[in-house]
Design a protein around this nucleic acid. Sequence first.
DNA 1: TAGATTGTTAATCGATTAACAATC
DNA 2: TAGATTGTTAATCGATTAACAATC
Lengths: 211, 211
Amino acid sequence: MRNPKIPEATIIRLSVYSRFLTQLENKGVTNTSSGQIAEGVGGSSAQVRKDLAYFGEFGTRGVGYNVKDLNQNIIKILGLSKRWKVVIVGAGNLGSALTQYKGFKERSFDVIGVFDIDPTRIGSTLNGVSIYPVSKIEDMIKENGVEIGIIAVPADFAQEVADILVKSGIKAILNFAPVVISVPRGVELRNVDLTVNLEVLTYNIEMQKGE
Amino acid sequence: MRNPKIPEATIIRLSVYSRFLTQLENKGVTNTSSGQIAEGVGGSSAQVRKDLAYFGEFGTRGVGYNVKDLNQNIIKILGLSKRWKVVIVGAGNLGSALTQYKGFKERSFDVIGVFDIDPTRIGSTLNGVSIYPVSKIEDMIKENGVEIGIIAVPADFAQEVADILVKSGIKAILNFAPVVISVPRGVELRNVDLTVNLEVLTYNIEMQKGE
DNA sequence: TAGATTGTTAATCGATTAACAATC
DNA sequence: TAGATTGTTAATCGATTAACAATC
């Protein structure tokens, strides 16, 4: 294993570095440094170099990094040099917004189907993506080799949906429902928790006042 | 300062504990233990006790915790015993979904206005919340003492919107735009990064394959 | 009392930061 | 060569885990 326990925080930062490098590329910048990247993403240059060092040597001492090269390397590390098929379960407000979110396509994610239980929604399309009944999830995943599922249903149904996704062979789940769900080992799970994020803010606001 | 550097991870977990305790309350459960909470949220009992210990003694040795009491204490810690006014900037798909998101109200957040630059959107309402022109942000924040702003505009406009919010006296910002924005010290900032979350998943999927 | 479970301390683990030799 | 910046090691810092005395 050439992988000595890489912090998750490092992976998150690599993703942010990559986005920043893409910005530089678009501006026509060809060369950069750990200092410039750090400034662009709000970190330290030592941390940028450390994060990159887990995966190899991408720069030139005394010179810095080639923007395009480095970005391609990070994209490769993150697994984004291929396109990923994604299904979204829940075609409510949030599910619909996510389905139509342009940022996913730019970063190599293709939403190929949305699923709902509401018969009035089924059959219509969102930005060219069809809404199917939940009963079709398994076929869709198996026939297309879908590896990522997004859960955007109310909390009460989230575990049930997770179970369907797992049974269908999904590899990873991004959960937006405000509830803790459990999946077997081997299935990756991340939670995007909208209220938790706001609550960290309110805690911090109150702390400031109290100081 | 009776606040010896509390890890942000602790605050995030407290928010999740609180949600779990609310579930228990709704089921009519009156008493619980650090072990039960840990099981419910996928952590360890030692960590639950440690997290709570930063703020006081909420349990009884040999007995456990009173569900309602503990939840109220955590809610107080997080600053949620009052209601918070929130404005959302951006009435596109994501901003609209967030405006109509029911989970916020349940956790003491009231969205009192949405702002956009698109004249065709301005004047209509989303779930009873009016869409105003961006030029009205400052008045709205100042007149209502709004403390939290949510950014749901494209990346290119995010910094500009952040500047407006800051200038209007906002205390905290939740940023959904996929770009690093900067705010002065004293303004809290958190980022909810949709693509970064997917990219951590793809990295992990690829890692598993490689092992 | 015996059993259970907290609150807290100490030990461990892991991540970040600082420093600097290597080298372009 | 002198200046710049990387890659890497060692030092520091912080968070988690384990253990257990306190006590209901």
